[in-house]
Design a protein around this nucleic acid. Structure first.
Length: 140
DNA sequence: GCCAACGTTGGC
DNA sequence: GCCAACGTTGGC
């Protein structure tokens, strides 16, 4: 299983909206960046991801799961773009802020720090475990 | 609201 | 294939 990080602006699609979708999950559409798309193409059903609120909050607020592998993005006719489906697993007990990530030397190589603008990022096992611990949240 | 970073587009 | 212009993202 691999780990990822998904960004969302909370005034467009907040964590609570993904929770409300339940097990049906949500198509993670609208990604128009090749690197982000390529990351989604590598995902398998059951992969886990952090759900990060950009702009407002700037913190990891929950854990989600890939519920369908990458398929054509239904919001466009452009065949270049496809995306996975996500469903919510559990919220973070304590959200982990970007400031906290930046303040942690062991997370200096995390994509959230090094590739700030990438909207779908890979996360290593070590980063996953550490960020979950910082958020007082079950990593599994 | 500003602006730096950076990805994409399109003229040449 | 280069690169300037442009648009978007996202932290501050």
């Amino acid at each position: 299983m691999r780990y990822w990080l998904f960004k969302s602006e909370p005034n467009k699609f907040p964590w609570e909206d993904l929770v409300a979708k339940g097990d049906a999950g949500e198509e993670w559409d609208g990604i128009r960046n090749y690197q982000a798309r390529n990351n989604m193409r590598e995902m398998k059903v059951g992969d886990r991801g952090f759900f990060y609120h950009s702009n407002i909050g700037k913190e990891v607020v929950g854990i989600c799961e890939v519920s369908a592998e990458s398929a054509p993005d239904s919001t466009t006719d452009d065949p270049r773009w496809d995306c996975v489906h996500l469903k919510a697993i559990r919220p973070f007990k304590t959200p982990v802020t970007l400031a906290a990530v930046k303040a942690e030397p062991r997370l200096a190589e995390m994509s959230l720090v090094t590739s700030m603008r990438l909207s779908v990022q890979p996360v290593t096992q070590e980063e996953w475990t550490l960020v979950c611990a910082m958020g007082d949240t079950d990593a599994n």
